[in-house]
Write a protein that binds this DNA or RNA. Structure first.
Length: 352
DNA sequence: GCGATCAGCT
DNA sequence: CACAGCTGATCGC
């Protein structure tokens, strides 16, 4: 495609079209309540959530892109000034929620995953896979712009372990750190497996309702011992405070893909003979990038970190690339690109 | 006084 | 390093 015709979710610059994949802060820079630069293409769900973030947003500027259906839009060629018709299709990115965009026009296709989680095993994953293959049998992706955040074989995110932690602390209150959007699937999973409601703060409950989750979450503390709270509102100190009263022992769980963000507290490792300590290997500093990171760490008496992310892990990225078979590829996270070069150069050329 | 942007932190 | 923010300072209106 010609330069200047590549749509992307960056809103500070002037552009002919604007595409919004999801509402995480790092993807809406330049977007405000007073937005007026032009039409904004996004999914139906993002359109529902957007006024929650930007109350005065002019909703007539939103162009809803339904999933799995081609939408046409017009562009002016920067070189010939002639009008071009381009087509866009959105796919579920399983991220917070978010979508991926496939752009096509006469001379080729581009695919932008932005932040995405490409599931491999579930029924939903099979459906997503067949839908994508069905579209790509007629189209070749010239450049795949890929979420390579965790593009390293070390990364794996098993979700079962968080349930194990909660189940093995039947007398404890549980506090889980989350953000304003994202990690819904993890909470749903916990709720379903343990048959328990999950407390969230009032604004988060509204968001959950907008996302279509009407039964799982509550703002009544009396209904559950599991609370999902803003990540920034609790810390080891908060938990220590809660545990001063012995009638409500509380443990905290921090789900994150970036495990080394959570630094273990020194001298705290072997004091607690719980089941979990013996089940999960204690991570050594040298394990950071070459060992398997996929296990739970109890890095404080009351705090656990679990490997979990709304981004794809390595095997999921691998499967996605094999499915799309792009001619060229570019990672959106520069520091991870070296791993992409290491692992995928045999089949795909890189755009630097 | 408000919103937008940025530095610093996690 | 970097997830997806948060807090606080500063600047323009």
């Amino acid at each position: 495609m010609e330069k200047g015709l590549i749509p992307r979710d960056r809103f500070t610059e002037s552009s002919q079209t604007y595409f919004l994949t999801h509402l995480h802060t790092d993807h809406i820079q330049g977007l405000t309540s007073k937005w007026g630069k032009g039409s904004l293409f996004c999914s139906k769900l993002t359109a529902k959530l957007l006024p929650f973030k930007f109350p005065d947003f002019n909703l007539s500027l939103l162009q809803v892109v339904d999933l799995h259906i081609w939408h046409s839009f017009s562009l002016i060629s920067p070189t010939t000034r002639s009008q071009i018709t381009a087509h866009v299709m959105a796919f579920d990115a399983n991220h917070c929620p978010g979508v991926m965009f496939l752009f096509c026009r006469e001379f080729g296709c581009l695919m932008y995953t932005r932040d995405f989680l490409w599931e491999v095993d579930s029924e939903r994953a099979k459906d997503a896979r067949s839908r994508l293959l069905n579209v790509l049998k007629n189209e070749t992706v010239d450049v795949l712009y890929l979420d390579n955040t965790y593009c390293n074989p070390s990364y794996d995110f098993p979700t079962r372990e968080v349930v194990d932690i909660i189940a093995s602390h039947p007398e404890h209150d549980i506090v889980i750190g989350i953000d304003t959007l994202g990690k819904e699937e993890l909470l749903i999973h916990i709720s379903r497996v343990l048959n328990i409601k999950i407390w969230v703060w009032p604004e988060r409950l509204q968001t959950m309702h907008l996302l279509g989750f009407h039964d799982t979450f509550t703002t009544k503390t009396s209904l559950t011992r599991v609370r999902a709270v803003p990540r920034y509102s609790f810390s080891v100190e908060t938990l220590e405070g809660l545990n001063i009263r012995e009638d409500y022992p509380t443990i905290g769980i921090m789900p994150s893909g970036l495990l080394w963000v959570l630094k273990p507290v020194k001298g705290d490792g072997n004091l607690f003979g719980s089941l979990l300590i013996s089940r999960y290997k204690k991570r050594q500093p040298s394990d950071k990038l070459d060992g398997n990171l996929g296990y739970v760490e109890r890095y404080h008496q009351y705090m656990f970190s679990i490997p979990y992310s709304d981004h794809s892990c390595f095997t999921e990225i691998q499967e996605f690339i094999e499915l799309v078979q792009p001619t060229n590829m570019k990672g959106i996270v520069s520091s991870s690109s070296c791993y992409m070069l290491t692992h995928f150069t045999t089949s795909v050329a890189f755009v630097v």
